[in-house]
Amino acid sequence: MRTVVSERGRLASVSLTLLDWRRRTQAMYAAVRRSPDPQDAWLGWRAARDRLFRTHPDTPLLEPAAHRELPFAPYDPALRFVAPVLPAEPATHAVPVSEGTVQLTRVGRVELPVGSLDLWWLGGYAGGLFVPFADATNRDTTYGGGRYLIDTVKGADLGGDSDGLLLDFNFAYHPSCRYNPRWSCPLAPAGNRLDVPIVAGEQL
Rank of each mutant, 00 (worst) to 15 (best):
L62K: 06
L62M: 12
L62C: 09
E63F: 05
A66V: 07
R68D: 15
E69P: 14
L70P: 14
L70F: 14
P71N: 12
P71D: 10
P71S: 09
F72M: 15
F72L: 15
A73I: 12
A78C: 13
R80Q: 15
A83M: 09
V85E: 09
V85M: 07
V85H: 01
A88S: 00
A88K: 01
E89I: 10
A91H: 09
T92I: 04
A94Q: 10
A94D: 01
V95E: 11
V95K: 12
V97L: 08
S98R: 13
S98K: 12
S98T: 10
S98Q: 11
G100P: 05
V102L: 04
Q103G: 03
L104Y: 01
R106V: 02
V110S: 06
V110K: 03
V114D: 02
G115Y: 03
L119G: 06
W121R: 07
W121Q: 00
L122I: 03
G128K: 03
P132S: 05
F133E: 05
D135Y: 05
T137D: 02
N138G: 11
R139I: 07
T141H: 11
Y143P: 00
G144K: 02
G145W: 01
G145R: 04
G146F: 04
Y148I: 14
L149R: 08
L149T: 07
I150A: 14
D157V: 03
L158I: 01
L158Q: 13
G159P: 13
G159E: 11
G159W: 11
G160Q: 11
D161T: 10
S162W: 13
L165F: 07
L165T: 10
L165R: 08
L166C: 13
